[in-house]
């Protein structure tokens, strides 16, 4: 199978280029396996990966124009030749490795942790199964970055717009019956950029390897804001 892989090593290259590789496909081969095979052929090729089962979120890449996880994408589903590029819109450090610091900063900015103000009980804080169900589809995010780096609004304003990943997490805490910081969370999302730069383009939903729906979460935040303002 033919792969064209984005290569750029700032130590030696003046400009990036696409390099061709031939990989012998084996049964059940995932894109990550193919990339590891390419690294066997070419030690200098760099990409991030770890768990190999779609839960650590290390190996998000852009393939034939779509963001996806290498380890859960069978190569049999890819159209030849396979063009593998780094996630779009982020500064490239080397080959497929991009600088995700702005993405992480946006995550930090939404205070992605439970804030419970009442005195804590000796045992667990109770939560009904129905309330717990509200966290499904939110807490499973693996922070791979497929969604935010597929979002045109995040491409234009990565410093001001939180992006779909961070906003999904903002809703994960707003939706948690144990969290007691609704007002301050909503106040912090005010303004034209942080939340409201979402134009429901829905690239995030399309690209999420865990089938999560940030657009829906953003809609829920807006709805809650509206209810709180009247």
């Amino acid at each position: 199978m033919k792969f064209f892989v984005y290569r750029y090593n700032p130590d030696v290259d003046t400009a990036p280029h696409m390099q061709e590789y031939d990989v012998e496909v084996t049964r059940g081969m995932m894109l990550r396996d193919a990339l590891m095979e390419i690294k066997r052929q070419d030690e200098a090729f760099a990409f991030r990966h770890s768990c190999g089962e779609g839960v650590c979120g290390s190996d998000a890449v852009n393939v034939n124009g779509a963001n996806l996880l290498g380890c859960t994408t069978p190569v049999s589903e890819l159209k030849e030749p396979v063009n593998v590029r780094p996630l779009p819109g982020r500064p490239v450090i080397r080959d497929l490795v991009v600088d995700m610091s702005q993405f992480y900063q946006q995550y930090r900015a939404v205070k992605p942790y439970l804030i419970h103000k009442d005195a804590l009980p000796e045992q667990e804080i109770l939560q009904s199964p129905e309330d717990r169900d509200k966290l499904d589809g939110l807490y499973e995010c693996i922070m791979c970055g497929c969604c935010s780096t597929a979002c045109p609004s995040f491409w234009w304003n990565p410093d001001k717009f939180h992006g779909p990943q961070a906003l999904l997490q903002a809703w994960r805490f707003l939706a948690d019956s144990r969290d007691q910081a609704t007002e301050e969370r909503l106040d912090a999302l005010e303004g034209p950029y942080k939340l409201f730069r979402c134009h429901t383009i829905m690239n995030c939903v399309e690209s999420c390897p865990k089938s999560l729906n940030p657009t829906k979460a953003i809609g829920k935040i807006k709805e809650l804001m509206l209810r709180h303002s009247i």
Partner: peptide, 20 residues
């Protein structure tokens, strides 16, 4: 330790009575 984790926000699955 488990209660502390829960207080920190771990989204444990729940029983009908609201416990972990």
């Amino acid at each position: 330790t488990v209660y502390e984790l829960e207080h920190n926000g771990v989204p444990f699955s729940r029983l009908d009575n609201g416990k972990i």
